[in-house]
């Protein structure tokens, strides 16, 4: 079983659009995993039919019994996240769940309780099984929900004898990103030829490098700025990344999105679809050897 993670450093580069195309091109042979649990969008193109929902408990959260509290101030002294003010009032949205207040409180006025941080789903789509999730607003963007999505995807692949897992990764370079690429066979970075895009690629390549994961890069909307495109490609080559074919700026992707379709379904014979097919074929070739 192989895992391909598609990431971008930042959002809006076309990562999800391309993942959806790959799903269509894989022809039912892959399991899809949407690991962008904070702003999951893949389901808008996949219209999954949810067959199983699991609740996801992240960290615990402090609950205060204001009646039992003697306002001694120990919680205020010890909490490093400023979740208490000097009068020992608790601000739950600042609680990081460390449980230090519960430990130091001499009056048993604080209990750590389970908090539901999100939901994970197992679904069927027209392109095969899908594992996805939703992190509730304001919850810690930890890698644990991402790891759960990946575990569910692996279980699905085993049950349904699929050889490939396609992972739509989250933006950034933090914990969720690390959780979505560690152990993957290959990472495909979708870059944008802007000055900020160059910067983002440098940071995300730093991460793949740090964890020793083989990576490829594809510049999307390359014709917005061809100098920047070359700079990104040169940088990636110098870091040993495989440079894949470029994709042009094309409104087809937005039109397909509005209809809830992948570009492959929306305009199969179009230029953009053709180029994405090439990208898919080349990525697969690299996958086979990695």
């Amino acid at each position: 079983m192989k895992e391909l993670t598609i990431i971008s450093g930042k959002g809006g580069t076309g990562k999800t659009t391309i993942t959806a195309c790959f799903a269509a091109l894989a022809g039912g042979e892959a399991v899809l995993a949407d690991c962008d649990v904070d702003a999951a969008d893949l389901h808008l193109l996949m219209q999954p039919e949810v067959t199983e929902t699991q609740s996801f408990g992240g960290l615990k959260i402090a609950v205060q019994d204001a009646g039992a509290c003697t306002r001694c101030g120990l919680c205020y002294d010890h909490c490093r996240y400023n979740a208490f003010d000097e009068e020992c009032n608790l601000y739950p949205d600042r609680c990081e769940g460390c449980a230090v207040c519960e430990y130091v409180c001499p009056s048993d006025a604080i209990k750590m309780v389970d908090r539901e941080s999100g939901e994970a789903y197992i679904s069927n789509t027209r392109f095969g099984p899908m594992s996805h999730a939703r992190l509730y607003a304001g919850e810690e963007a930890s890698g644990r929900l991402v790891s759960l999505v990946r575990q569910n995807a692996r279980d699905l692949a085993r049950e349904r004898s699929k050889e490939l897992i396609l992972i739509d990764g989250p933006p950034g370079i933090g914990c969720p990103v690390i959780a979505s690429i560690t152990g993957a066979n290959l990472v495909l970075i979708i870059a944008e030829p802007t000055l900020s895009g160059i910067h983002d690629v440098e940071r995300i390549v730093g991460v793949t490098y740090h964890f020793g994961i083989p990576a490829l890069v594809c510049v999307n909307k390359y014709d917005i700025n061809e100098d920047n495109t070359r700079n990104i490609e040169d940088f990636c080559r110098s870091k040993g990344l495989g440079v894949m074919g470029r994709l042009p700026y094309d409104d087809t992707s937005t039109r397909a999105m509005i209809q809830g379709k992948s570009i492959i379904e929306y305009d199969e014979d179009g230029e953009l679809a053709r180029r994405i097919k090439d990208l898919w074929d080349n990525t697969r070739k690299v996958m086979e050897t990695s």
Partner: peptide, 26 residues
């Protein structure tokens, strides 16, 4: 970007919040 806790930390205490969006389903 997003709606997880770094966003809350950044927005907390602001007098006004501009939300930038695109006219697409995403």
């Amino acid at each position: 970007p997003g709606t997880a806790c770094p966003v809350i930390e950044a927005v907390r205490g602001a007098d006004f919040c501009i939300l930038v969006t695109e006219p697409t389903p995403f």
